[in-house]
Design a protein around this nucleic acid. Structure first.
Lengths: 237, 237
DNA sequence: CCAAAAGTGTTCTCTCTACACCCATGG
DNA sequence: CCATGGGTGTAGAGAGAACACTTTTGG
């Protein structure tokens, strides 16, 4: 029988794989779902766009690493983050063996501030992404699919919006994420059925048409809405 | 601007995190969902059970590493594998920083053969797992939840069964996985609705009661059934 | 004939979809 | 008054849940 100290030495020969996190940072603007990208700083990918990511530090939780990336790049430390998948093909990174864990983040595009003045940072509509550096296009696609599966189950899209919004704005967000048009009446029914919203008894202002009611997310789903408080079925009790 | 060779040197200081894969190997026997576990070989976890896992080799794809673990431990190289989640808390491994990616596997418990004669390897009913080594209980729970979400959407439980089976056996598997009892008539309707099965025009034999029809999975979902050929909605086209 | 499981249909509810008209506001 | 989007209800189809009796086989 080994102990942990003994086993550690046998681990050493394997300490030549690096691990990183990559964040697919989603924002919403102009009725489009967008992703925050940075110009790749590798010769091999000159001119291509790349996700925001960084190597994980030895004393840092995996999730903490992605919060750090978010914080460093957007200045926000209060965002919705969700782990999606870990990409570990041997050839995926030209400078060596790097396994990366992908997270997606949902941020309000208008409250975030670029922490560094890096002008190589830009929001791109997800529907217009071309070739990207590394396997990042694949990562974006995987995260988008996961997001699409999640938005109707969990109250998370609100992280893309200001606190107060109209049902029309909310529907626009869903349409941008799902890439389909939704029937207005059915959408409103479904959303009210979920019970996620509080009616603020306020009206939109400065709109060039009949103003709509203004809603906000209920406190209990209090920003993020990571855990949608749905009663899990009792299994293997 | 850096190139890959330059960046590599800056990576070196981070090459002190190891990455492993852990496999939650599910099998089905005696109307119970079971997991293949091994006695932990670390002093810190003496007497506790642990998942089958190994460090990822530098020249090996992440997924290949979990196939290798499966192959080495069960002798099977033809199994259904699915990545679930990556666990990366700093304190999760006593012998150093090890980030692990969890996969679940579905195997037919009766066709697998232990490749090594390790008698520390045992099948445990998932409903009776106590404390486990590392964070492995948490990993099992996470994988079970993912499995439960997947089985009604995708034709994968057949990997737990022999090629030919009765509807009763199939229902027993679903009940074991979901941890609930199902209505027989509704179950049969739902399953036939899916269109996953071929009627073999054979009957059960050697049963002490009225024999049932025997079915098999349709060829198109050909073992594994990784991709359930469902038409994806056209998005962001 | 008894035990055990196979096989089968209907009703109800709920959810989702399709669909059209009047209303309030700003310009 | 016109343009723009806000707001609303109903009918039909499909999926899932509840529920009981007859049939076949082995013992």
């Amino acid at each position: 029988m080994k102990n942990a100290a003994l086993e550690k030495s046998s681990h050493l020969e394997y300490f030549n794989i690096a691990i990183s996190v990559d964040c697919v940072i989603f924002g919403y603007e102009d009725k489009q779902l967008k992703v925050l990208l940075i110009k790749s700083d590798l010769e091999e990918f000159e001119g291509m766009w790349s996700l925001l990511g960084d190597l994980v530090r030895p004393d840092e939780d995996l999730e903490a690493a992605s919060y750090r990336v978010l914080q460093e790049r957007t200045g926000l430390d209060d965002v919705y983050l969700e782990q999606v998948y870990t990409f570990g093909a041997t050839g995926r990174h030209p400078s060596g063996r790097v396994i990366t864990t992908a997270y997606y983040a949902l941020v309000n595009i208008h409250t975030y501030k670029l922490a560094n003045t890096d002008n190589e940072l830009h929001w791109h509509p997800v529907s217009e992404l071309g070739t990207m550096a590394f396997d990042h296009k694949n990562i974006v696609d995987t995260c988008l699919k996961r997001l699409q599966e999640a938005v109707l189950e969990h109250p998370i899209v609100f992280n893309l919006l200001p606190k107060k919004f109209s049902l029309r704005e909310l529907q626009d967000v869903y349409e941008a994420i799902l890439g389909v048009e939704l029937d207005r009446r059915n959408f409103r029914k479904r959303i009210t059925l979920k019970g996620w919203l509080d009616d603020l008894n306020e009206m939109e202002e400065d709109v060039p048409h009949r103003p709509g009611k203004v809603y906000c997310l209920k406190e209990v789903f209090g920003r993020h809405g990571k855990k949608a408080l749905k009663p899990a079925p009792v299994l293997h009790s």
